[in-house]
Design a protein around this nucleic acid. Structure first.
Lengths: 263, 263
DNA sequence: GCGCCATCAATTGCATACGATAGTCGGATA
DNA sequence: TATCCGACTATCGTATGCAATTGATGGCGC
């Protein structure tokens, strides 16, 4: 497991890494002046890289995140790594068990449905607000994003997975509500974990088409229609996750609970 | 300023039990996940104490949170304090500016309205879910909580402020949705900050009465009525905050922006 | 052969130390 | 006298070292 983590981190540090439009330096560059002048603390950089690795499903749910391993590969001290892990834990995408280390969170089926339910509510609100007052610059940004998604289709990999999620975050940002954006960002992150854990495969093509439909619905200024499209899209995403109890990988603790008489 | 922080922290540690050679407050209530585990790392303890101090409005928005000062008073190292501050920052109740230290977040008027808007949406959902399936044990817990609120009325202080907020968190918990609880917890926390910053005075009596009405509405199983009561309650809370731009304390940077031609 | 207990290695939690950064105060100069 | 500049101090960001806890391995008794 540690070997896998090692491999992934090495690969991530291998080339230039782009996060939210900003290019992050590689692991070797982390110690350079460029990073510090960009006002990115080491802790911040580690946070972003780990988050990216998790959201791109390079680090899968359950993967152990050893402080030493991460620190070694990013050429920073464990202190910086710990800071990043605490933040990720606060966002719910990393589990932090006392004295036993951190690992990528493993949402249960129950949590998965819970998250999707909340996500529908939040994003329906996003749509309602955007129909009310999304300007031309907003549409331009959305279309630009979709173009990026399409360009990433050939990639069939991490990039398109991330962009699919970031489309929804961008929608939330365009409402101008920081709090709403924050919550949407969190449910989208969790959904990435859920998909990584339960979904058979990621099919970005559908998502991009559906995103285009959402933009079109927003243009039409028809709240009901737009909301409907968004909810259908989210249903489609959830369907891809195959959240059927019988099909899904069983959660051991849930099963043993029954045998332990904990009801 | 440091003296004030010192005084507050000392007072908080006053009526407390001692654990691990360090002071813990007696009643955590819903603050943090205290009930889940007996494990109390130093960082965890600092986190809970600071959070409590902020939510009880002992530490007011804008108060500088010097790492050294906090570390000295809780008899821990700055490392533990930093961990706590990072968590609080992730929850949005502490601002963390690079190389300039932490301070209690100061929500702007705009953010305040934003938060209240989102809070209405989230808590309306809570009510809808509770009307659907709130059992007798749930009602018992709610009534018990209201009794505590009433008992704390004479206090006229921090306790009643905290309990008023925790009533809403308890409602969210009773839905059984972890994610919903998490978000409600966050908006309620932010609202405490908002009230601390803008409200003239806290009047717990009204709140308790309104909480009783909410419970009654839940009993009636009338979704529309229950939702209406809740929204009215939140309106009342917001009204108490007096979020009128003209009355509110001006935000200096906002004002200076205009004069600096940043428009 | 099987299960229990002690010792050990690995990893985390915490504290301290050091270098870096931002704000402050005093002096020099126009 | 007012302004600007430089040193200083306080505080933060990071690294490193040590203590504490956990999980594992081997030995012992049954």
């Amino acid at each position: 497991m540690a070997t896998l983590l090692y491999t992934i981190l090495t690969r991530m540090a291998g080339g230039a890494i782009e996060v939210m439009g900003h290019v992050l330096p590689t692991a070797f560059g982390l110690l350079g002046e460029a990073t510090l002048s960009e006002r990115s603390s080491r802790s911040e950089v580690v946070y972003r890289l780990l988050r990216q690795a998790i959201l791109e499903q390079a680090l899968k749910p359950g993967t152990k995140l050893s402080e030493d391993t991460i620190a070694d590969h990013f050429k920073v001290s464990r202190t910086s790594v710990r800071g990043a892990l605490v933040r990720l834990n606060a966002e719910g995408i990393v589990d932090l068990r006392a004295n036993k280390g951190a690992c990528v969170a493993e949402p249960t089926l129950e949590e998965a449905r819970d998250i999707f339910s909340l996500r529908r509510m939040l994003e329906a609100e996003v749509i309602r607000r955007l129909v009310a007052d999304l300007g031309t610059t907003g549409f331009k940004r959305l279309e630009q994003h979709v173009r990026e998604e399409q360009a990433a289709l050939s990639d069939h990999g991490p990039l398109s997975i991330r962009l699919a999620g970031e489309f929804h975050i961008l929608l939330a940002e365009l409402t101008g509500s920081q709090a709403l954006t924050r919550f949407v960002r969190e449910v989208v992150s969790r959904c990435s974990l859920i998909l990584a854990r339960f979904a058979r495969l990621h099919s970005p093509e559908c998502a991009v088409d559906e995103h285009i439909q959402i933009i079109r619905a927003l243009r039409s200024k028809d709240i009901a229609a737009a909301e409907k499209i968004m909810l259908e899209h989210l249903d489609a995403v959830e369907l891809r996750a195959e959240l059927n109890p019988d099909k899904a990988e069983p959660d051991i603790s849930e099963i043993l609970k029954r045998y332990a008489g904990e009801s």
